[in-house]
Amino acid sequence: MERVTLRIPKQQIEEVERMVETGEYPNRSEAIRSAVREMLAEQEGGKERPSEKRERRTYVRA
């Protein structure tokens, strides 16, 4: 497994910590891996036909 360093806003990491504390995830890393898996599955499951346009999310750099 590769190690990745990323910067996350304090409020978001606090939410992740709450999910760990309530037992939803065993640790922060697994919570973040789960979010990445979900994002990738959404991308893969949403393959569109060339004639179809799908709304894409846009993210603002913080």
Score class of each variant (00 low, 15 high):
K47W: 06
A31P: 02
R7A: 11
K47L: 14
P26W: 02
V20F: 00
E14F: 06
S34E: 11
R18G: 01
P50V: 01
Y59R: 11
Y25E: 02
E38D: 15
R49E: 04
R57W: 02
E44M: 14
E48W: 13
V16L: 05
R56F: 05
R33E: 01
K53E: 14
E48A: 15
E30V: 09
L40W: 12
G46T: 04
N27Q: 09
V36S: 04
M1G: 13
Y25V: 02
R37S: 08
R28P: 02
V4G: 00
R61T: 08
A31G: 02
T5Q: 04
Q11E: 14
E15C: 10
I32W: 00
L6T: 06
T22Q: 11
I32D: 00
R3H: 07
E55L: 12
P9N: 15
E48I: 13
R33I: 06
P26S: 14
V4I: 14
V36D: 02
E55N: 06
R57H: 06
T22E: 15
I8K: 07
P9D: 15
R7W: 06
P9S: 12
R57V: 05
R3E: 11
Y59G: 08
V20K: 01
L6S: 03
Q11N: 08
T22S: 07
R61Q: 07
E30I: 05
K10R: 13
R57Y: 01
A41K: 05
Y25P: 02
T58D: 04
A35W: 08
R18D: 05
V16A: 02
R61G: 03
S29Q: 13
A35M: 08
I32G: 01
R28F: 03
E52S: 09
K47V: 05
Q43Y: 06
E55D: 10
T22G: 00
K47A: 10
A41E: 14
K47Y: 11
E21L: 15
R57F: 06
K47Q: 10
I32A: 00
E24W: 14
S51D: 14
E17N: 11
A62H: 07
P26K: 13
R56M: 05
R54K: 13
N27C: 10
G23R: 07
T58N: 05
P26D: 10
R18K: 15
E15F: 08
E30F: 09
E52Q: 13
Q43L: 12
Y25D: 01
L40G: 03
E2F: 06
P50F: 04
G45C: 02
L40E: 12
R28I: 11
P26I: 12
Q12N: 10
E24N: 12
R49K: 14
Q43S: 03
T22I: 09
A62T: 09
G23F: 06
P50Y: 03
S34K: 12
S34I: 04
P26A: 12
V60Y: 06
E14S: 10
E38G: 12
Y59F: 15
S29T: 13
A41M: 08
V4N: 00
P50R: 06
I32P: 00
R37F: 07
R18T: 05
